[in-house]
Design a protein around this nucleic acid. Structure first.
Length: 706
DNA sequence: ATTAGGG
DNA sequence: CCCTAAT
């Protein structure tokens, strides 16, 4: 009855590629938050934060209690471009330009401990309560969660989560292409192309939405009133990282927002974890283009943070509660990284990055359209579909959109401390795949409003490259078939078939732990999680005992797909010539265990070959990862194994006894097939007497007699 | 959705 | 394991 102490991990920030699916890679959105008390923050500071996350991401195969230092990590060279938008919003781009470092960002492998528990929003989220600048996806998600909780907003969710890049990048005459990149942009497009760049970051100005929605908050620390501050550019001549004079003012909020509700059993002081900004190193950050909206703190040149490692250790790595999935070197999609990159680069002209922007906006934004304008960096006035109509010319333009990524909704995981890292990986993986695998629908939002009429043309709707596409959003929504209809109010979204290949790799099975994974989009800790039951992939799962006797204590991962609209899943591609070049992710290899083979042989003995579905149902019903095709294939290989000499066999040796049974069963059922409608053949009796009489006599009798 | 077979 | 053709 005594349960193991559990740790609750919320994580967010997964980002899986929308296009191309080929990579199956998850370009991870680096979840970070930076909070500033006061109005001092440098762009570099923010970058350092992000880059620090990158460093963290580079960690390989982290053990739960591992500690590491920045020196252990490859340098992540980052290039950042802060773009200044006409409306006063900022978008900060950060890209890694180090080839080696690029890998890390291509995986969904982040477990962010900062997440609060499912009921985190039961109280004000820190980023709200403190009126701090928060630049993170968390903010967005938190916002979504709150919406879910309070039901304040229904439709806008989708737009929040998406990052759509359009227009200037790909449309129109070259002259029109106003690349929203600062004039100080360091990398040329060619350079960018050559570079394995990875974008990270999150649009932060979405947080202003929160501000508008949460009544009792203080104004953000960073306000656009600072616009008078002269922009400060960090170029090659200013390689030094500039931190705010008062370092304590910068608090990378990487902690549980609500310790009480998070269920985290680690009492580490939240404030202690990430006290200072990680020192990335000068050479790692080449350029920073500050904006005038960023009040640059007084330069504290030569300030190095020797405690960086300690911060990391104490605040991050030593926390057993902090766990994250780390892609191993053997994950297939890794090698498709380049393809992914080039593909994307080709499609967008070489600018690949997500925006990171602060939330300089006022807190009195209450108009949704304004919010969206802000959020998307649209120029002040909101462009209604009607307006867009006007400006649309008669030429048959193609609307080109690039959806950079979409995000897996927040999941909530509960896993015992004794669980292995591998099981954690698997657990998370299961949760993610469960969400993605169950299909979802796509909603289109324009100016924050859901476009419900699927029959309207883009032109009619007001979606054209001539217009401010920033207002265009896409949302992934729970599959209507899996949720109550009311949860998917947005017209008739395009359904993504369930068999859509999952973009994320599966992680190797690791048995022996009890994993519970729940998608917990709502703050309620005990939300009824109706959902798929996904069996853990441990080797025991399919053992005959387990298969026929469910009373085992074998672990099973419960993956509950949220019944309600978790936060908007995010962005969806609409690229016109979205090539099918995408290749599905190959499933991870899961060698059959002896017990599985045993079960398979036994089932085939009873049911015969050619009834793989029945075999599956009978013997592998709980092994979700074993499809009837898998079983068929395994039988095929078993047969082959049985026929070759033992010297030629590889892998875990299959007991000869089983192989013999394979051969016998095969010959038997082959004959049965040949003599289908024939009377009971002699060979049947022969077979029965020779091989199956001991183990499955009754079944054989049933089969034969029935 | 299953089955069968090649890759 | 994947992919496909054929049911």
């Amino acid at each position: 009855m005594v349960l193991q102490k559990r740790l609750d991990y919320g994580f967010r920030g997964y980002q899986v590629p929308a296009i191309p699916r080929a990579t199956r890679s998850a370009r991870k959105r680096v979840p970070f938050r930076k909070r500033v008390e006061g109005n001092q923050i440098s762009a570099f500071d923010l970058l350092a934060t992000v880059a620090g996350k990158l460093l963290l991401d580079k960690e390989r195969a982290p053990a739960l209690n591992d500690t590491w230092s920045a020196e252990d990590q490859p340098a992540v060279e980052t290039n950042t471009v802060k773009e200044e938008r006409g409306d006063g919003n900022l978008s900060l781009k950060l890209e890694t330009c180090n080839q080696d470092s690029a890998d890390a960002e291509f995986f969904a492998s982040e477990l962010v401990p900062q997440s609060s528990g499912p009921n985190y929003s039961s109280k004000e989220s820190p980023c709200l309560g403190n009126g701090a600048l928060v630049a993170t996806s968390d903010c967005l998600e938190r916002f979504d969660a709150q919406k879910v909780m309070h039901g304040k907003i229904k439709n806008e969710m989708g737009g929040l989560a998406c990052i759509v890049e359009t227009g200037p990048y790909v449309c129109g005459k070259s002259g029109d292409c106003i690349k929203p990149v600062s004039e100080n942009k360091v990398l040329t497009d060619e350079e960018l192309v050559r570079t394995d760049k990875v974008l990270i970051g999150e649009v932060a100005d979405k947080c202003s939405l929160e501000d508008a929605l949460v009544s009792d908050i203080k104004p953000p620390a960073l306000v656009s009133s600072d616009s008078s501050t002269k922009a400060c550019s960090y170029g090659d001549h200013n390689p030094l990282v500039s931190f705010p004079a008062k370092r304590d003012d910068v608090d990378v909020v990487s902690r549980d927002d609500d310790e009480k509700s998070s269920g985290c059993t680690h009492p580490s002081p939240p404030r202690e974890r990430f006290r200072s900004t990680p020192h990335i190193g000068d050479r790692r950050i080449r350029k920073i283009l500050a904006s005038k909206y960023w009040k640059v703190a007084p330069r504290s040149n030569n300030v190095t943070y020797s405690n960086y490692d300690e911060n990391l250790k104490s605040g991050y790595c030593n926390r057993t509660a902090y766990k994250r999935i780390r892609p191993g070197k053997n994950y297939p999609f890794k090698k498709r990284k380049l393809f992914y990159c080039s593909s994307e680069l080709n499609s967008d002209g070489g600018t690949s990055s997500e925006g990171i922007s602060d939330s300089p906006g006022k807190t009195n934004n209450r108009n949704t359209s304004i919010l969206y304008s802000k959020m998307h960096g649209v120029t002040g006035e909101s462009s209604s579909p009607a307006n867009q109509h006007k400006s649309f010319s008669s030429r048959d333009s193609h609307v080109k959109l690039r959806i950079k990524s979409f995000r897996v909704p927040e999941l909530f995981i509960e896993i015992p401390e004794s669980a292995t890292v591998g099981s954690l990986k698997r657990t998370v993986m299961e949760a993610v795949t469960a969400v993605l695998g169950d299909g979802f629908c796509v909603g289109v939002l324009l100016q924050g409003k859901k476009v419900r009429d699927d029959n309207k043309t883009l032109l009619q709707t007001g979606i054209s490259c001539d217009n401010q596409m920033d207002a265009l959003g896409f949302s992934l929504e729970p599959n209507p078939s899996n949720t109550s209809p009311s949860l998917c109010p947005g017209g008739s979204p395009l359904k993504i078939p369930r068999d859509t290949p999952l973009p994320l790799a599966r992680y190797p099975a690791n048995h022996g732990s009890v994993n519970q994974v729940t998608c917990n989009p709502s703050p309620e800790p005990h939300m009824p999680n109706l959902g798929n039951f996904i069996e853990s992939n441990n080797d025991y799962a399919s053992s005959p005992t387990d298969m026929f006797d469910k009373s085992t204590t074998e672990s099973k991962a419960l993956v509950a797909v949220p019944a309600m609209s978790m936060e908007t899943l995010a962005v969806v591609p609409v690229h016109k010539k979205s090539k099918q070049a995408e290749v599905a992710q190959r499933r991870i290899r899961r060698p059959f265990s002896i017990t599985e083979v045993e079960a398979l042989v036994q089932a085939v003995e009873k049911l015969g070959t050619g009834r793989w579905r029945d075999v599956k149902l009978r013997a592998f019903d709980n092994a979700k990862h074993r499809t009837y095709v898998d079983l068929k294939d395994k039988w095929k290989t078993l047969l082959h194994t049985a026929r070759i000499s033992p010297q030629q066999r590889r892998g875990e040796p299959v007991p000869q006894e089983l192989l013999d049974r394979v051969l016998n069963a095969h010959t038997y059922w082959s004959q049965q097939q040949a003599k289908q409608q024939q009377p009971l053949p002699e060979s049947c009796l022969l077979y029965r007497n020779s091989t199956m009489i001991t183990s499955s006599r009754r079944d054989v009798d049933e089969k034969i007699l029935g």
